[in-house]
Design a protein around this nucleic acid. Sequence first.
DNA 1: TTTGCATCCAACTAATACAATTGGATTACT
DNA 2: AGTAATCCAATTGTATTAGTTGGATGCAAA
Lengths: 136, 136
Amino acid sequence: MKINTNIRYGLRAMVEIAKSPTPVLQKEIAERQEISVNYLDSIIAGLKNAGLIVNYEGKGSGYILAKKPKDITVYQIYRAFSPELQLVNCLCETNECRRSSNCPSKDYWFELNSKIKDIMDSKTIEELLKDNFLIE
Amino acid sequence: MKINTNIRYGLRAMVEIAKSPTPVLQKEIAERQEISVNYLDSIIAGLKNAGLIVNYEGKGSGYILAKKPKDITVYQIYRAFSPELQLVNCLCETNECRRSSNCPSKDYWFELNSKIKDIMDSKTIEELLKDNFLIE
DNA sequence: TTTGCATCCAACTAATACAATTGGATTACT
DNA sequence: AGTAATCCAATTGTATTAGTTGGATGCAAA
C-alpha cells in the first residue's frame, strides 16, 4: 500500500500554488519543490484537467487555484490522477466474485475503503497550510 | 492504492480457519476459497511465520488459529506479508528529504498513515465474523 | 518399508504498473 | 521573428505483482 508519485507531487504542487500570493510558473514549482520540470508536466496536466488549477497567459502568467483552498480536498487531488479509490477490485459490481454476497473480507475492505476516502475528502488545502503554519 | 493479493488471500484464509470448528487442511482452504493450492503455499507460510496459525501433524491434522479470534487484527495479517505501513517513503527517518521538517504533505501522509493503521489494528477476526453473521 | 498425501521451499516467468526522460508541437507575448 | 512556457505523445528502464513449476521433506496408513 503506497501513495504514488503523481499524487504526492500533485499535493506538493497544490500546496506550492496555494502558498503563493501571485500566480506561479511551472518552472517555479519545480524549483521550489525540487521536482523535474518535465516530470511536473503530467502532474500539472492532471491537476488542470481535474479543474483544480487554472493558468492565464501573458504578463504575470502562472498557475493559481481554481477554487478556494477550503474547497479543495486531498481526495480531489487523488482523483485528478486515479479513478475512485477501490482498494480491492471486487468492490466494483462488475468484478464481484461468486462469494461476494456473504464475504466478511469484502465487507471489511469496503468499510476501510470508505473510511480512507472520508479521511482524504475531509482534509482541505486550507487546513493543510494552517496545520503547518501552527508548527512553524 | 491497492490491497495486494497476499493480504486479501491471507485474510480470507484466516476467516476460513476461524470459521471451522475443526482443523482445516490447506487443500480445504483452497477449495472453499477458490484459490490455487500452490499459490496458497506462500500465504500459509506467511501466516504461520507471523505466528497467526499453527498446524499439527498426523491424524486429524490441519491449521488452527494460534490465538483467539478477538486477539487477531487485520493489521497483524497485513504485517504477516509487509513491513510496517509506510504510505510514502519519506515517513521513514532514513529517507527524509531536506524539506521534511516543514512539509505539509508529509505531515498529512503521516496522519493518514496512522489512521489507516488504527483502522486495521482495531478490527479483529472475531468482529469480522460477527458482523457477517448479523447480515446473514 | 513402501506408498501416498500434505506441507514446505526455492526458482522462475509473464504481465503489469511506476517513475522518469526525451523530443517535439503549439501558443502567445516581446 | 524569436523566445519562453505550456502542452502532448512515445519511449525507456526498473520494480513489483501474481502466479506456476518442480521438487524436497516429513508423516502415517497400508
